[in-house]
């Protein structure tokens, strides 16, 4: 049962998103085309100044391989920089809590995580990272990883629009223009809005406050590695504590929060991420945060239409994304509104009403309820954001399967900034190839012939992430260090591991957080999945861009398969579902599907 509130929230969300995405698309097309933007001449002067000091020229064209090499070296240097700052933070300024240097394996994982736009966090921000690390290393990479994704999308779109060109653009120009014209100004406005709503932005030391009512509680004892201690019978060892004071973490939160959402990064300043009141203070900030995740991915659909000279093509891609999003969001809203059979057996009222949102409220904020929590979960995993306002690990089995599937589709349902667009265009190439096989014509897309080389590269790009996810999961569940991190035995423990690798390889960053993943084993294995899930996909996509740019544009004829109508939208949706889900059906059957059957068979 889905409540009317959920449906209204979803409808209003999509309507406001569409209204904002249209002007954003016009703006992005100008940024991607390299044309001057009226009224922003002062930014153009800054842009030219940056090229001068960098020794590059805006007009210097790059082949796809030069573009790829620049992108890879830039991002590898970013990883090294973030690693170094974490390992030296104790001796660096802006560390009022005197937080220790981050351990080597955690620093490695985090550095790869933020450079790959994944923002998987094995650590808790307020107990691990100094303000300098958060601002200089992590927030900096939030901008650069987002700009990298958008740059690749621009390069691929321009390749479709190009006529017999050797160049796909200039990486430094794409990176600079995206950061300067899009990410920085929108983030600045967004951060000020967040502060106006109650998000904090300061360099204060943490505040100790006295509780009005001391709290006595029991908690599990952990060993030095953070793993739960167990007694001779295998039961968890617990201790009873009384808290009279609470430490309130401070910091420059709003400036990181804005780009965290806008750049589909998702790595929270605090461990509780957007469930924390200093990151996401009100229902209004929550709605705006949800909008900001999809703003650039949706805007890029309209930018695609403008840059290839046929706005209907952008609508078709947006239509396919929206169909997939609404279908899967409806499923998670339904699943989370269900009464939990274990609680129903105890006679607990789980019906939606005037005083409660009902449904499965474990791991959710009462201030957000089922509707906003489930919608946020769908948005954050459809895009490669990974910010959370509820604990996905506590979702119902089918409710938790939706975020899992949205990631496993390859993060193309709106997807990450840039990465959603280039991922969906790769699926579109596959769709026209399949259609070409069916009708016996050489496939074409957006005026370019799709031939053997493009299909080889498309195959690599599509198969990289399932290979990393399934191989990584298999290794983890076979080895003791992998199974040691599971919080639950059986099917749900498997789901936790599958979720971790799906999240890492698809650069999402959210987790079934019961998994204790801040160990050398998971830090290393997930870093491999994150790097290659990002860059081993970008390389063949840039190769496709290079090949397409060199081709002539073919005029539309009576025999050309139209790629702007509902038939193509259906074909594209079918291709994404068939290719995306079929890779994972056996794994999903062992995880969330078994959990669902076990839960409702009792």
């Amino acid at each position: 049962m889905i409540t009317m509130q959920s449906l209204i929230l979803l409808a209003v969300y999509l309507a406001v998103l569409l209204a904002l995405a249209w002007p954003m698309g016009i703006y992005l097309a100008r940024v991607g085309d390299g044309t001057a933007i009226r009224g922003l001449g002062w930014l153009r002067r800054i842009e030219d100044f940056l090229y001068r000091i960098a020794g590059t020229s805006a007009s210097a064209p790059m082949t796809w391989k030069t573009y790829a090499l620049a992108l890879l070296v830039f991002n590898a240097l970013g990883v090294l920089f973030v690693y170094a700052v974490q390992r030296l933070q104790f001796w660096l300024p802006l560390n009022p809590q005197a937080l220790a240097n981050v351990s080597p394996d955690s620093a490695f994982n985090t550095a790869v995580s933020f450079a790959s736009n994944t923002n998987w966090q094995g650590y808790g921000g307020e107990s691990t990272m100094s303000y300098l690390t958060q601002m200089l290393a992590l927030t900096g990479q939030n901008f650069f990883s987002a700009a990298t994704g958008i740059a690749v999308a621009f390069a691929l779109i321009r390749a479709f629009a190009a006529r017999s060109a050797n160049s796909i653009g200039n990486f430094w120009v794409d990176l600079t223009r995206t950061t300067l014209y899009v990410l920085l100004p929108v983030s600045a406005v967004f951060a000020v809005f967040l502060v106006s709503q109650g998000a904090i932005q300061n360099f204060s030391a943490y505040k100790d406050v006295t509780l009005l009512d001391p709290v006595t509680y029991t908690q599990a004892k952990n060993d030095a590695d953070g793993q739960p201690l167990k007694d001779a019978k295998g039961e968890p060892v617990t201790e009873t504590l009384t808290a009279k004071t609470q430490t309130i973490a401070m910091g420059p939160v709003a400036s990181q929060e804005a780009i965290k959402m806008l750049g589909t990064n998702g790595g929270g300043f605090f461990n509780a991420n957007s469930a924390h009141a200093y990151e996401n203070p009100t229902a209004l900030t929550n709605f705006v945060q949800m909008l900001s995740i999809f703003l650039i991915p949706a805007g890029l659909c309209f930018a695609l239409g403008r840059m290839v000279g046929d706005i209907r093509q952008g609508w078709a891609v947006l239509g396919a994304m929206t169909v997939l999003f609404v279908g899967l969001t409806t499923l998670v809203l339904f699943a989370e509104q269900q009464a939990h059979p274990g609680l129903a057996a105890l006679g607990i009222d789980q019906a939606a009403g005037a005083l409660q949102s009902g449904g499965n409220m474990e791991g959710k904020e009462t201030r957000f309820g089922i509707s906003a929590s489930a919608l946020f979960a769908a948005i954050t995993t459809a895009a490669s954001c990974g910010a959370v306002i509820s604990m996905h690990d506590s979702f119902m089995p089918l409710g938790g399967m939706v975020p899992l599937v949205l990631m496993q589709l390859g993060e193309v349902v709106f997807g990450g900034v840039g990465s959603g667009m280039y991922g969906m265009l790769i699926f579109a190439i596959l769709a026209v190839f399949i259609a070409g096989l069916m009708i016996g014509r050489t496939p074409e897309y957006l005026g370019k012939k799709i031939q053997s080389f493009e299909m080889k590269m498309t195959s690599i790009a599509i198969l990289v992430t399932p290979t990393l996810v399934l191989a990584g999961t298999a290794i983890a569940v076979m080895l003791d260090p992998g199974t040691a991190g599971m919080a639950n035995p059986g099917a749900h423990g498997f789901s936790e591991v599958l979720y971790a690798f799906s999240s890492a390889a698809n650069n999402n960053g959210s987790a079934f957080a019961g998994l204790s993943a801040n160990t050398p084993f998971y830090n290393t294995l997930l870093a491999i999945a994150m790097w290659f899930g990002r860059f081993a996909m970008i390389v063949p996509i840039l190769a496709v861009a290079g090949s397409l740019a060199a081709k002539k544009r073919i005029d539309v004829t009576a025999g050309t398969m139209p790629t702007h109508g509902p038939l193509f939208v259906a074909l594209l949706v079918g291709t994404v579902l068939l290719v995306g889900v079929l890779n994972y059906v056996p794994a999903l059957a062992l995880g969330p599907v078994v959990e669902h059957l076990q839960l409702f068979a009792r």
Partner: peptide
């Protein structure tokens, strides 16, 4: 320990560059 992870990062870069080289060689095939 730091040297291990720094080498790993450089290895990531080199493997991905090798992938680019491999993709390019596929393109040059007749």
């Amino acid at each position: 320990m730091d040297i291990v992870f720094v080498v790993a990062i450089v290895a990531f870069l080199l493997v991905t560059c090798a992938l680019a080289e491999g993709c390019d060689s596929l393109r040059r095939e007749p």
